[in-house]
Design a binder for these strands. Sequence first.
DNA 1: CATCGTTTCCACCTATAGATGGAGAAGACA
DNA 2: TGTCTTCTCCATCTATAGGTGGAAACGATG
Lengths: 216, 216
Amino acid sequence: MKENAIRVLVVEDHQIVRQGLVALLSVADDVEVVGQASDGMEAVKEFEARQPDVTLMDLRLPKLSGVEAIQRIRSRYSNARFIVLTTYDGDEDIYRALQAGARAYLLKGMSVDVLLSTIKSVHAGKSIIPPAIAQKLAERMASEPLTQREQEVLEQIVRGKSNKEIGSELGVSEATVKTHINNLLGKLGVEDRTQAATAAIQRGLVQLDPKGGIRL
Amino acid sequence: MKENAIRVLVVEDHQIVRQGLVALLSVADDVEVVGQASDGMEAVKEFEARQPDVTLMDLRLPKLSGVEAIQRIRSRYSNARFIVLTTYDGDEDIYRALQAGARAYLLKGMSVDVLLSTIKSVHAGKSIIPPAIAQKLAERMASEPLTQREQEVLEQIVRGKSNKEIGSELGVSEATVKTHINNLLGKLGVEDRTQAATAAIQRGLVQLDPKGGIRL
DNA sequence: CATCGTTTCCACCTATAGATGGAGAAGACA
DNA sequence: TGTCTTCTCCATCTATAGGTGGAAACGATG
């Protein structure tokens, strides 16, 4: 146990990456890893048990997503501080994580030095959002959000369904589906459903499941 | 420097993950990390300089992909042994890596124990391919490969181009594009271009642009 | 040389997608 | 209450996509 060290909780589902992070942080004498979690539920439990100063959080987690975990924890511990650490997810994840209260967003390509200094800054109460990401965020804020129904239709498009299939899937007529599609194409700034599908994947509006289905 | 240890080269572009891997492997006394590289070109250089027993290789690398790096190295050192280490890439990458001569394919979700035992097995000359991946591979082998032209058309589809646009892009008539699309839809086992686009992304046949600007 | 696969193109046809303009019902909200 | 948004649906039209069958040119391969 280190004296006066920043107490850090590491949440990451890939064991190798998690253990690597822990190993790296362990050598820094002003940071102490007080807990680890490999999914969202565990993260909430560990947070409550350890009360870390800063939580390093991956976004893609089993059981409970990183965003949801942040929300749950912050609903009770409003001053909890999070650094989101991910590979290269879509804008949507960044947006939601920062909305949920994350103080910083780091890519795994970052150096260890940057990681450590970010931990210190966030612990000191600062927010670290790289300019490039801040700009993306501004763009995303400016663009109209999709309605619930439009989001559902978009997911079906990514699944490869035809308008007719989407209609029967959602229990509405094909005409309604067309209306929604026309609206969402405009909002996404694309010309057809194929562009909508790739844009949705790229922006993180819909996730492709690694195996072959779709994950929300 | 450890005695009788397996000499390992670690190739991974994400600094945090790479340094984490190195930290993890360093504590094992029968494995020694003799070099690191963060892109494909560096990997080739490091391999030649260090002559490692086993190379841990990420597939998505700047400058030169992991697959190409493996090919280049094996063209001169045919007994070089590789373990491909990745997050959850498409089938196509797995296929190509194993074709290129990788002896094992591991996901980053694997435990450190599995990683270490895989290193030992591969060093001993074995090949470790998880049954689930072997099956995927068999499926891929069975399915007809796309021709060069079909691949090009597929890429344009993913980029959201219409048949007419694809035609002028590739310098052929729209009719030709339609023919290629009809053929590739059959080969991919999908019904329309939207399904083709998502399938291509999912299977790793086409990579989406690494996002418009968020790289740090 | 003959065959096979690839690439190129055509005509013709049907099905689906997308654009446009309109409209009614339900809930949220000031 | 009036307004706004969302969700629903319709008709109509045009453009694009996709299916089918056929065919010519080319290179590689046996």
